[in-house]
Each structure stands twice: as C-alpha cells, then as structure tokens.
Amino acid sequence: MSTEIKIKKRYLAMFLIPGFILVAIFVIGPIIGTFIISFETPNGFGLSNYYDVITETSPTKALVLLNDMPRPPPWGALIHNLVWTAIHLPATTFLGLLLAYLLRRVYGRSIVKSIMFIGMVIPMVVGGLIIRFMFDKYIGIVPNLCGLIGLTGLDKTWTSYPDTALIALIIGSIWLWTGFSLTIHAAAIDSLPKTYIEAAKIDGASDWQIFWKIIVPSVRAATLTVIVMTMLWDLKIFDIVYAATKGGPGGASTVLAFVMWLYFALDLAYGKAAAVAVILTLLTLIPAAIYIRQVMKRG
C-alpha cells in the first residue's frame, strides 16, 4: 500500500466531517426533532400521539378504515398508499421497460423519450391540476373517451366520486412517473452490448423472447433502482393529491403525507403530525434498506 493511500485512509474521516456536519444539521437534526415532538403530549412525553393517529376514524385523517368491507374508498390513508404502490409500482416499472425496449428502433425516439420525461420535469402540483382536468367530465380526455366507447358509468368527473378518485390519481401518477422508468431503463438497455441481442436473433429468438430472456434479466440493476425510487415516491406522494382532490371526496383519496399536512396545517397538532411523519419515515426506510443492501451486495 502506497503512502498516499495510507494518508487518504487515515484522514478520510476528516474530509467527511464538513459534509457530515451539514447533513447532521439539516437532515439528521430535524429528523431527531420530529421524532422527539412525536412523543410530546399535553401531559408530558408518551405514546398518545401514535395511539390517536392510528385509531383516528375521521375519513380525512384515518390511517386504516376497513370496516364494512368490501366497499369503495375511503379505506384510510395508509391503505391508499399501499394500493397506490401496488398498482403504480408494477405499472410504471413495466411500462418504462417495455417502452424503452420498443423505442430502441423507433426513429425520433429521443423526442418521444423527452415528451415522456415531461411528466417528471413539471412540478407535481401542476401535474395534479392536469390530472384533475384530464378526468373532468366536460374537458377531460379520459371520461370523454370512456363515453365514446360506451363505458357510461365512467363518463363522469372521476375526481369527484369516491369510487374513482383514487384510481384517477394513480393513473395520472403512472403518466407522470413513467418517464423516469423509461429514461433509466433506456440508458441501461443502450449500455448492453449489441452482440447479446444479435446472437439471440441468429439463434431465432423472437422480439418477445429477447425482451423476457435477455433484456429483463440484463437490466435488473436499473429495474431495482426504478422500483426503490418509485416505492419511495409512492409513499411520500402529496402534491398530486393536494392539487387534484384534496384527499376527497369523503376521504377517498387521502394519503399519509396529506394526513400529516392536515394535522400540521389545519389541526395545528404538531405532535400528531410528527407521529405520522415518523410512521411515514419508517415505511420509506423499508425500500431504502432494500436498495442499500442490494447496492452493497453489488459493491
């Protein structure tokens, strides 16, 4: 080991300190502060904030509301987040991968990719408003399309009805987020050696077989990144809901971050808002941990 490397290792910690101090002040500090506030109650420190937010039954603030099932939403913000993830995650991941593969040979693919990426570039609040208009009975493309093909039950303002509000937001978010998945997957596919696909073609593999047997396994690392980032995005979702439905109607489209905002901004119950924030943080740690583990494995 050279002397230079020895010095580097010895002083590595020293070089990390400035960055770490910044992270500590602006990230770790507030996290700790939030954690402490979540235990603050009028009677001192305790778990009552957590108890209150978990057992809350108001449709706009409930985390879980699964009585009298099966029925349309509201199911509670936590369940809405999970449903959102269950639909949005596979849809965006697969759509992005498929489009990246299909666009490979399309003339002007970079323009198409750029258009798809617009959803990622525009502010999410604007995205929420666009979703609201997309699903409006009079000016929205989706209800009008449904009306044209005879789906009269869906020829309505989706965001105004409890049975369609959540799904409208999820579909809208698929549109907004697919650009991310497409970009990451396209970069991964472009970096694959062309010989893989050429060899498969010579062996007589169809496009579909190439997609499933070569492309999907080869871009696994990129897919993992997309999955983790999408999960994090799904759990933290707020802007779209705020702009499009405000969690309604009847609490049918609330999500955890929105409930946190309600406690914080309207109820001025900072302890409860912090409790929801902690729950949300713990949930986001799951995908983050998966990702870190995979990265470390690869590393």
Binding site: S58, T60, S160, P162, G248, P249, G250, G251, L266
Partner: peptide
C-alpha cells in the same frame, strides 16, 4: 380547524352520493 375540511369533504361526497346522507351527518 380540520373539521372545516371534513365538512367540505363530506359535502362533496354527499353531492355525488346523496344516499350516504346518514353516514355524512353522523361523521
């Protein structure tokens, strides 16, 4: 407070699903 938000939200529900009157008023 947050009841105001609840009130607005429940009325939006009532407007599209008037059969849920009892549920809305009880909430």
């Amino acid at each position: 407070g947050d009841w105001q938000k609840l009130f607005w939200d429940q009325l939006k529900l009532l407007w599209v699903e008037p059969d849920k009157l009892d549920q809305v008023l009880n909430t």
